[in-house]
Write a protein that binds this DNA or RNA. Structure first.
Lengths: 348, 348
DNA sequence: AGTTCCACTGGAATCGGTTCCACACGCGCC
DNA sequence: GGCGCGTGTGGAACCGATTCCAGTGGAACT
């Protein structure tokens, strides 16, 4: 029964041709007579022949394989888009992806890179999240590498990240556009961390205010932690202000979710009484809220695609400084932004 | 500069030994003199030598590679645990995982399996979700295969799924335990689909009621769709009953989330006025709700681990019917279940 | 001293492909 | 008839590892 897999030599022998000819058929090269090609193909189909990739790899030196190291991002629903984008682009170029989750463990990360190099990957995508600085294993330098949603602190590796500032600006402008002026911003992390995901979204907020001639009010800015609970608490605080904000811009959808509960407690309706814009487009949350949440989408699929594209097409090893690419975060309009309510306390 | 990678022959030549000796050192085999071993290792370190895995693969016939095909599960946060569990077990056995997302597309799925077979995988894990029946590409039969959270309709492939019935039963018992008698169950899908994830959770619910001598009330059972919106609507409906339920068991956490909004609308507090148990343990949701949601966890990490374990240790090709394994869903106690409230309308 | 045994070693054969070189054959041209 | 050329083909060499067999030298035993 379980006879071993046929090799190219078996095919050649049975079809009565040389191995070279079989190889030519396999690779759809010209200079094979139609009759011969057909005969070889028939034999291959007959025996259920499948070429062994490793053999090709060893001879040609091309593995047609990229490593995809995820760090914390796999814990999130974002991973899907990231991997899908990367995989789709890789497939177009007949490459495969080898995904390893480093899970924040240095030893595992190191090991992962070593394993990938032994497997002969032609490039590595290193995907993290929160657009933060990282220090990568030195071994990564042996092979083209692209960073996704993070960057090497030395800026000596190409990276692709969301345009956080532009996203922050557009989110704020969406609220301004509907007449909101008292707009709160709850950052997704302490600004002191220096994470672009926190700092630049906030800067975008400031830019938007300035561009529209709205004076910045420090009381409306809170440093959140990203969690639903954090959103809930800061929202309660903000609602306790003498002149509470009418528009809320949260650095994460999770905080916006927490805010919905704070609004419900106070009997405030979205978007009738308060307007909300989130960030991240975690659709499990954003779609599920009532009303659904208007938010800025992180371009994960695009980043994944871009990373592989760059591995495939960039000229490596040259002197110029590596690209630090930014991709726009599209506004996803749902139902949480509306016009500024008439202010009951200000009638007279 | 970019001289090509050293091979085992280079190492042998430079260290002044035969290739066989280098190979023995590489594989930490005995019968190598300490001095020789040391010299070879020094040369390898010197040249930054890394063995080419493909060459080993071709010679030994062992790829030390498993395929991991995900179908829809990658869209969810569950993917992380699944891949982590599988990867952890694989790493222990010096195997790697090649993850491909089929994304519900038959052509991609077919292609994925072909590619994996060409890469010489020693087994394939096929992971879907919702514990439903699937028809798999015939090519899968060429290599050991384990199904996760789904099953081949012919039951001719081993699979591992959550014990949905037991989960449904324990969820219901958790409510019974706190004195609830009018317990609603909102299924996560139409029962007519026949999906075990829907049908068996419901059966578990029935079993629990019966075991505790509580009469089944058809009016308290609703066929939901899994979405937050669906949970919201059914909850409103149920609250409109003359004798509304005090306990709610939702087939998904997302529906439970929708329910929270329905409760908020009616001014009902969890768990003071109503108690809720979810299913899935989507912690982004379950942790974020206020109060956090008590729910049944899907054992994704364990399923991933079990699948790889089975690939590694099961005896394949033998006659006995393939294992259909079930893993328990642990109850994750948070804060959404409390004692039955006194019934205001029933005082007299 | 001769035999046996063991630790250690070198290198040829091998895995399944690709690549390249040599060559056969038919055809048209001078 | 000799030459050149293009098409189609076979097969040796090669890629980088493992495996196995033969062989060396020294220690231990008879």
């Amino acid at each position: 029964m379980a006879e071993k897999k046929p090799s190219i030599h078996d095919i050649a022998r049975i079809a009565g041709v040389g191995v070279g000819t079989v190889s030519r058929v396999l690779n759809s090269q010209p200079n094979v007579a139609d009759a011969t090609r057909e005969r070889v193909e028939r034999v291959m189909a007959e025996l259920d022949y499948r070429p062994t990739f490793a053999a090709r790899h060893i001879r040609t030196g091309r593995s047609q394989l990229f490593g995809f190291v995820t760090d914390q991002v796999l814990t999130t629903p974002f991973a899907h888009d990231l991997i899908r984008g990367a995989q789709a682009r890789a497939r177009q170029a007949d490459h495969m992806l080898m995904v390893i989750d480093a899970d924040g463990d240095d030893r595992v990360r190191e090991q992962a890179v070593t394993n990938l190099l032994e497997r002969g990957v032609e490039g590595i995508v290193y995907a993290a999240m929160f657009n933060h600085g990282v220090h990568l294993p030195a071994a990564l330098r042996e092979v083209p590498t692209v960073l996704v949603d993070c960057y090497e602190v030395a800026r000596d590796l190409p990276s692709v990240v969301p345009d956080e500032a532009l996203g922050g600006r557009e989110a704020t402008e969406r609220l301004l556009q509907d007449g909101h002026v008292r707009i709160a911003m709850i950052t997704n992390d302490a600004l002191s961390t220096g994470y672009p995901a926190a700092v630049e979204r906030f800067e975008g907020y400031c830019q938007a205010l300035e561009a529209h001639g709205v004076t910045f009010d420090e009381a409306l800015v809170r440093e959140g932690l990203g969690s639903a609970d954090s959103g809930y608490r800061h929202t309660r605080d903000l609602l306790d202000l003498e002149l509470p904000p009418t528009g809320f811009f949260f650095g994460t959808d999770r905080m916006a979710m927490g805010a919905y509960f704070a609004f419900a407690e106070r009997g405030l309706r979205v978007p009738h009484d308060v307007s909300v814009v989130g960030f991240d487009d975690q659709h499990y949350i954003a779609d599920a809220l009532r009303p659904a949440l208007t938010t800025m989408a992180l371009p994960h699929a695009a980043m994944g695609r871009w990373a592989v594209e760059h591995l495939l097409t960039a000229s490596w090893g040259e002197g110029r400084p590596p690209v630090q690419h930014q991709l726009v975060c599209p506004l996803v309009e749902r139902g949480s932004v509306g016009p500024v309510p008439a202010e009951p306390g200000r009638k007279g």
